[in-house]
């Protein structure tokens, strides 16, 4: 799956993605205190230490893979994005300034790589300026589903069907909301870190996260309201 030809292909993309990453890197973000452990790892990466590459992959590949998978919803493409991310990161490690943590920087490269692939697939539907900071308050999802489905038995929330419904809802989140949601809520990045990865303001991260939550609530309400309705009908018949 990962051949020399692919490596060459990734190398040609590396310069483009790295340039994009550098260009999008806000110059005034607060310097992140780098732990001695991470500083040591970066020094070893810069020295071309193969064991450092392996250590970096072991530390960060799972998170990078999850972000990639949530962005493109395809395991094979997610793997390609992970490969490209580490290839680009190792090539550009001398330019890494430590403004953000290494993990945050890798998320940023992975996000840009995923975004570039999404643009290629859907150029008409993915914003050219994915970091657009337009008025995110506009179009705030107004709740339409007002049934309180929290009364359902807990086991109804733990079925594989319910989990599938939730996974599907996350996959269908609009792309700009999904990136914030995944980084902030699933990967556990802080609001500041998420803003650095996506090159948007902290306020923008908060608004997008709020919109994502409301969007998911609305989307899940359809499923759980129907479930509650079925339960009520069954009770009435017994």
């Amino acid at each position: 799956m990962f051949t020399a030809a692919r490596i060459a292909h990734y190398a040609s993309l590396a310069a483009i993605i790295w340039r994009m990453t550098i260009e999008l890197h806000a110059p005034d973000v607060a310097l992140t205190a780098m732990s001695g452990d991470e500083g040591d790892l970066i020094q070893r990466l810069r020295a071309g230490d193969k064991s450092a590459c392996a250590e970096c992959i072991d530390r960060h590949s799972a998170g990078v893979y999850r972000l990639a998978l949530r962005m493109v919803n395809d395991p094979h493409e997610a793997e390609d994005i992970v490969q490209e991310t580490f290839l680009n990161a190792f090539k550009a490690i001398d330019s890494f300034e430590g403004r953000a943590g290494l993990g945050t920087w890798l998320y940023r490269i992975a996000y840009n790589t995923a975004l570039m692939r999404l643009r290629k697939k859907q150029p008409l539907y993915v914003s050219i300026d994915a970091t657009s900071t337009g008025n995110e308050e506009e179009g705030l999802t107004t709740p339409l589903q007002l049934f309180d489905w929290c009364c359902l038995p807990e086991e109804d929330f733990q079925t594989s069907e319910a989990r599938t419904e939730l996974e599907r809802a996350i996959a269908e989140l609009p792309e700009t909301l999904r990136a914030v949601f995944v980084l902030r809520e699933l990967e556990g990045l802080s609001t500041d870190e998420t803003a650095q990865v996506l090159n948007v303001s902290v306020a923008n991260v908060k608004v997008r996260l709020h919109r994502a939550r409301l969007w998911l609530r609305e989307r899940l309400a359809g499923y759980f309201t129907e479930l509650a309705s079925q339960a009520t009908e069954q009770t009435a018949h017994t």
Binding site: I7, K50, I57, D58, S61
Partner: peptide, 9 residues
């Protein structure tokens, strides 16, 4: 995937 990554890099 992890194995391929480690092998490649």
């Amino acid at each position: 995937t992890r194995t391929r990554l480690l092998a490649a890099f």
